[in-house]
Nucleic acid binder design. Structure first.
Lengths: 204, 204
DNA sequence: ACCTGAACACCGTTCAAGT
DNA sequence: ACCTGAACACCGTTCAAGT
């Protein structure tokens, strides 16, 4: 009992285990993290600021895969599009984290930094101050929404004979695999075209 | 004890109470619903198919506010845009239901019917079968994503002095109230323009 | 410093028993 | 038919106590 010679727990291992549990089961719990790491539930609280603290660590972990270099590219629209793709790829690797992250505010400094850079990019590109957040929020909705679609390959709509939906069934069959990817590409194209048009009109 | 002369519980009251709890606290629990209705926790299970059943009732309740008549309008793009606005208004009234609904498949027949109609509309408008679901999914992401933004007025990003983000703070201040509404309008305009362009190019 | 072990209030779910 | 009351396995969180 008491303290082991080599620590059982640390923030790194706790985050990794939480992410594993989410990828496998869609959720995590403090007791299950502790069990996987061979420790008691209470011990986790010595390393982490409760369940919410773990959620914020997860945000940092997943967002660490976003390539910050994308935002340095030129021109601005190439940078924004590359950022969106990198952003989406990061969450596509762990789509089931999204519902967990969407209900709590972004605190993680490294993630806030990314937004800061994105805002700076659009300011430098000449966008009006008041339209920058709507742009970033719309892009973020697109990215996270379409990444979330990756979680339930074909089970977003549970078609039954009880409610006949022939056209819906047909449309689902016609798009097949990669439904979520196509929705992302479509949304991204629409967004980028509109962003470019917005900027042009602002120069008039 | 035993059975009261006038029933304490029914699906309607259970759904209403769950929705009240979500609007107030962001979540619901079976015991809390029971307590508000003056019944025991176990009694709820005689009317409803567990917690998941309540979630599906919530989906039906919130979606009932979507005007199905919008999809009958002409031309097709006016119908789709009106549907999107009605869809968003329904969820804007109860934005905190969104995280709850996003992780479970749509089973409610009345909701499936809405999708069936939307697919039919786009088929009739001449869209290719394979691009209809991407269109609907992209629109849905836009609607739900921007409705979810309504939950946390200004607390989506928790800016601290620890991580200085002057441009982000400036952009947030510049957009002010109605941030989520602006992101929706921007996204919707982008989406509708792209949908029209897609259809035109398909006719070539 | 790091962990245990027990406690607390809270979940979702089931089910015999009552009227 | 409708509800109670008790049970079960599971949460998140705290904290004295141990080494």
């Amino acid at each position: 009992m008491g303290r082991p010679r080599t620590p059982l727990l640390d923030r790194e291992r706790i985050t990794t285990t939480a992410l594993e549990l989410i990828d496998e089961c869609g959720d995590f719990s403090v007791p299950r993290i502790a069990r996987r790491l061979g420790a008691q539930t209470g011990s986790v609280y010595h390393h982490v600021d409760g369940r919410d603290g773990i959620v914020e660590l997860l945000r940092e972990r997943v967002c660490a895969a976003i390539d910050p270099g994308t935002l340095e590219r030129t021109p601005w629209d190439a940078a924004l599009e590359a950022w969106a793709r990198s952003y989406r790829a990061a969450f596509a690797a762990h789509p089931r984290t999204i519902p967990l992250l969407m209900t709590s505010p972004v605190r993680a400094p490294r993630v806030l930094e990314q937004y800061e850079r994105a805002v700076s990019l659009l300011l430098a590109a000449g966008f009006d101050r008041a339209e920058i957040m709507p742009l970033i929020i719309a892009l973020e909705n697109l990215v996270l929404g379409s990444a979330l679609d990756l979680t339930a390959p074909e089970i977003m709509w549970e078609l039954t004979d009880h409610a006949p939906t022939p056209h819906l069934a047909e449309a689902l069959a016609a798009v097949g695999e990669g439904r979520a990817d196509r929705a992302f590409e479509l949304g991204l194209t629409a967004f980028m075209n509109h962003a470019r048009a917005l900027r042009e009109s602002g120069y008039r």
